[in-house]
Each structure stands twice: as structure tokens, then as C-alpha cells.
Design a protein around this nucleic acid. Structure first.
Length: 488
RNA sequence: GCCCCCGUCGUCUAGAGGCCCAGGACGCCACCCUUUCAAGGUGGAGAUCGCGGGUUCGAAUCCCGCCGGGGGCACCA
């Protein structure tokens, strides 16, 4: 059997990590079996349409490399792939249920439904539709029609017995039918609800495996009943658990980014996000954490999915991103990091220079955007922004004259360096520490701030080498001048 | 209120009766390396396997009860 899976977002906003994880599992399953991955847009709620929602979903998938084989933009043999374009199909299927006596027209107003719910709650009963229209006399119906009321179509849920659903992660989950109510299949605006549209589409599109959020588990019996009413065989359904915030509540903005697109902006790598998300509820074995996309595709298996909710561990994602950054080749990393740099300095970056900077920063950044903090001074002209206190640091605090003297000697030695390499620079400058009676690290700290404006940087002499003779000397002299000015 | 799901180190997880007085990873601590920051190396702390009963020679693993957490109960998905 050919495996066909789908990611079926409703375009009400940008996709969050939970959404994308279901997309990832669906994609992995399809790719693992050489099957088909489908993108379907579930836009059946006219009130919740958000502009750009579809584009946001697509760009998230594209960024992560979860390419789809059939979908709104690429088409396919089972289209259209946008539910609002399939209204005719749902209407026909709703009609079929009506004729089979599996559904009925309901004329109850929202006000009446609201009232019924209120009364039930007052009586401490579960709020459910009271089935008022389930057995309407023909003349009553004509009366409602005459009043110009537009009905909804409701499913005729069995009043007794039980419905067994099957979930890939949990096995059989049984529901008593008397705890279910007659849910709406088609709204009064003619649009289907999820309970009709998703079932019809999954069947018509020959979906073999449905991967969706756990929040759907309570409505699974409805879906099984609809499949049965149509005489269809349900696909295998896997309800994936939720991703929780550190407080075990719903993941929200406070816990980092909400949209996966924000992770892209911050400089997370697609492979790292994929790897991390895959491991939230799935495992390869008992010891592997870094797993390539290819390995994921080769070994992904529904059997290793677990049903318990996972708390989002932002530190681990960050660590993993660092691992992937360190594994990137130099050109790739340079290209990835470039936009962040150009954005920060407001101009074009010299790629030849960047190429020499990369080896210095690669193992010092965990996020692409950290390139700015770590290396912007390589790309800026003009005076660096730091104050004298930072320049002096702890060791030279209150010892302006000593610092001035030390800097003078550093400048002298640096000027005398013939071949501008980090080895030559270190050979020239390191001995100065002993001569000046300070620890090498303290002297280097002074020079570091002078040359970079920062206290945490890549190794000093390599930095000076890449910066070049001219810039380095200019910055050293500038620092000297500031000290002299401070000394009066 | 009713229905459903879940419950192993702080977190992600391995574990499908003896290999587990519970393994790996992130984070944390210490030491090593070291010019800062990282990266790397070594070692360490950290879980009475939610609790209580069973079953069994033997249970994290099977059964029952309880507790805790989460989700659902729309003309939203």
C-alpha cells in the first residue's frame, strides 16, 4: 500500500512548534515509505481567516525542507487542496448522510442552543445539544422553512452502545455513545465543519495515516462514526501529544518564540530544529541525539512515538543548534551568517574577510545572529564604542600610567612586526607582559578591548592577524589616545 | 460537572518481568586545556521509576484503587 500523509493546517496564523512537529512526523513517515506528503489548507471557518496564513505555513515548511508532493500551489490528482474550494464535494457528501438517515436538518438558533447549555450547566449536566430537531415533524420543519430559517446539518449519533477508536500510540480508546452529542457537519453558511471536511478529504485523498494533535482525541469517536456512516475504512490515526512550556502549561510567547518563523529569524538552523522536534516524543535508540535528516528518514517509525506530553527544553535546542553550526562547512556558514551581519552594520560584507573570520567564530556561536556580537568589529570602520573603564579592566583600574606605558610598548612591538601573522604578533607581544610585570592575560585583555572594543572575542592574535596591520595599529593608537586624554 | 489522555533524574528520553540498587542527552558542579569567550576532555551531583495495594521466586515493566497534570465538552480547527 502506498503511504499518503498530510499536513492540514488551518491558516489562522503562523505555525508553532507543535504544528510543525506533526507536519514533520507526517513528512518523515511519507518519505520513509517512499510515499506522498500532502499539504491541505483547512479554511472552513470564514470568521477566522487571517491574511497571509497560507503563505506563513508554506514558508515554514519550505524553510525546514519539508517539501510537499501535492498541495494548493503544486496541484495533484486529488485537488483542489484548499477546503473552501471543495464546498460542492462536502455538500454532496452531507446530502448522502441525510438520505441515509445518518444526519438531519437542525433549525435551532444559536440563542436557543446557548440557553439549553445554560440550563444543563445549572443542572450540573454536561453541555450537549438536546436533539430537539432530531425528530421534527414534517409540518414543524415546513414551519421553520417558512420562517426563512437556514438549517445546519447534524450527525445522528447512536444513542447507546459504544464506539471504539484506534490510536497508533494508545491502542483502542473506547467511548460511550451516550456521552457524545449530535454534532454539526455543515454550518448554516454552507461551510462544513472539521468533522465532515477532514473525514471526506482524508478519504477522497486516500490518506493512509493521519498524524494530528492530541486535542483531537476526544472527537475521534465522531470521526469513526462518520467513517462508518459512509461505509469507509478509517486511516490509521496517531494523536501526537502536546508540546508544553516550562511551566507545564501551553507553550506561549513567554517561553521563546511562538512561530517557527521566529526561530528562523534568530538564526536557528533547519536541521537543528528538525532534529530537536523529532526527538520530542520519538527516539531513535537509547543514546543517539544528533540525527541527520537522512537518518531520520531511514529510521522513522510510528512504533517509537510515545504518548506523553513533552516540555519544550529551549537550552537543548540551543545546544543542538551549536552542534549543527560547528558541523557546517565554512562557505555555508559564511552565507548563512551574512544577512545578520549586513543587517547590523548596514552595508555589504566583504566575503573574503568573512571567510577568514569564520574559523575564528564557528565554535563560539550557537545562533547565527550571535555573529554580530562576536564579530561585528571586523567589519566596521571608525572608532570602537567602549569606555576607558572597560579598556582598563580590573587589572589596570586606577593604573592609567601603567596601561598607557604597556599600550605604548605593544604599539612599538606591533609596528616592528614584519610579517603580520598571529605567530609573529604573539612572539612580539607576549614577552612584554613579563617585562611589564603583569600576567599575559591581563596585558592581552587591555589589547583585546583596544582592538575589538569587547572583553569576549575570538583569540586575540588571530583576530589581529585577520584585522590586518593598518586597522589594528589604528585601533591601538586610538586606545592610547583615549587613555592619554583620560590621564589629562 | 461529564468524557478522554498522560505520569522514569530539573528537562528530553532508554526501558515492553530478572541484563536496572535504572542507561544516554541538555542543563548544573569540579578539574584539565587556556590570553578572554567558547569548543573539547575527565569526573561528579541528580530518579524511593506519582502513591498504595496486589500477582510473581522476582515488577519501572502485569492487575486494581487513589492522587497529580493535561486535553475535550462550539454553526473553531
Amino acid at each position: 500500500m502506498k503511504v499518503r500523509t498530510r499536513y492540514a493546517p488551518s491558516p489562522t496564523g503562523e505555525p508553532h512548534l507543535g504544528n510543525i512537529r506533526t507536519a514533520l512526523y507526517a513528512w518523515l513517515l511519507a518519505r520513509h515509505h517512499g510515499g506522498t506528503f500532502i499539504l491541505r489548507i483547512e479554511d472552513t471557518d470564514q470568521k477566522r481567516q487571517v491574511g497571509g496564513g497560507v503563505e506563513a505555513q508554506m514558508s515554514a515548511l519550505r524553510w525546514l525542507g519539508l517539501e510537499w508532493d501535492e498541495g494548493p500551489d503544486v496541484g495533484g490528482a486529488f485537488g483542489p487542496y484548499v477546503q473552501s474550494q471543495r464546498l460542492e464535494i462536502y455538500a454532496q457528501h452531507a446530502d448522502r448522510l441525510l438520505r441515509n438517515d445518518h444526519a438531519y436538518l437542525c433549525y435551532c438558533s444559536p440563542e436557543r442552543l446557548e440557553q439549553v447549555r445554560h440550563e444543563q450547566q445549572a443542572r450540573r449536566e454536561p453541555p450537549r445539544y438536546d436533539r430537539f430537531c432530531r425528530s421534527l415533524a414534517p409540518e414543524q420543519r415546513e414551519d421553520f422553512e417558512a420562517q426563512g430559517l437556514t438549517p445546519v446539518i447534524r450527525f445522528k449519533t447512536p444513542l447507546s452502545g459504544e464506539t471504539a477508536t484506534h490510536d497508533v500510540l494508545r491502542g483502542s480508546v473506547v467511548f460511550q455513545n451516550d456521552t457524545l452529542d449530535d454534532f454539526v457537519l455543515v454550518k448554516s453558511d454552507g461551510y462544513p465543519t472539521y468533522h465532515l471536511a477532514a473525514i471526506v478529504d482524508d478519504h477522497l485523498m486516500e490518506i493512509t495515516h493521519v498524524i494530528r494533535g492530541e486535542e483531537w482525541l476526544p472527537s475521534a469517536p465522531r470521526h469513526f462514526l462518520v467513517y462508518r456512516a459512509f461505509g469507509w475504512k478509517p486511516p490509521l490515526i496517531a494523536h501526537v501529544s502536546r508540546i508544553l512550556g516550562p511551566d507545564r502549561a501551553k507553550l506561549s510567547k513567554r517561553h521563546g518564540a511562538h512561530s517557527v518563523l521566529e526561530y528562523r529569524e534568530q538564526g536557528y538552523l533547519p536541521d537543528a530544529v528538525i532534529n530537536f522536534l523529532a526527538l520530542l516524543g520519538w527516539s531513535l535508540d537509547d543514546h543517539t541525539d544528533i540525527i541527520s535528516r537522512q537518518t531520520l528518514v531511514e529510521h522513522f517509525d510510528l512504533k517509537r512515538l510515545i504518548p506523553n506530553p513533552a516540555v519544550f527544553n529551549a537550552e537543548k535546542l540551543l545546544w543542538m543548534n551549536g552542534v549543527y553550526i560547528r558541523e557546517m562547512d565554512a562557505d555555508g556558514l559564511a552565507a548563512a551568517v551574512r544577512p545578520y551581519l549586513e543587517d547590523a552594520i548596514g552595508g555589504r560584507v566583504d566575503m573574503e574577510l568573512l571567510g577568514r573570520v569564520i574559523p575564528l567564530v564557528r565554535e563560539r556561536i550557537k545562533l547565527l545572529n550571535e555573529i554580530v556580537d562576536m564579530a561585528d568589529f571586523f567589519f566596521t570602520d571608525g572608532p570602537l564604542a567602549y569606555d576607558v573603564a572597560t579598556l582598563l579592566g580590573k587589572k589596570f583600574a586606577g593604573r592609567l600610567e601603567d596601561a598607557l606605558g604597556a599600550l605604548d610598548r605593544v604599539i612599538g612591538r606591533a609596528e616592528a612586526v614584519e610579517v603580520w601573522t598571529h605567530e609573529a604578533l604573539e612572539d612580539a607581544i607576549r614577552p612584554l607582559a613579563e617585562e611589564a610585570g603583569v600576567k599575559a592575560g591581563d596585558l592581552f585583555g587591555l589589547v583585546r578591548v583596544a582592538v575589538t572594543g569587547k572583553t569576549a572575542t575570538p583569540p586575540l592574535f588571530e583576530t589581529m592577524e585577520v584585522l590586518g596591520r593598518e586597522t589594528t595599529l589604528e585601533r591601538l593608537r586610538s586606545a592610547r589616545a583615549r587613555l592619554a586624554a583620560a590621564a589629562g
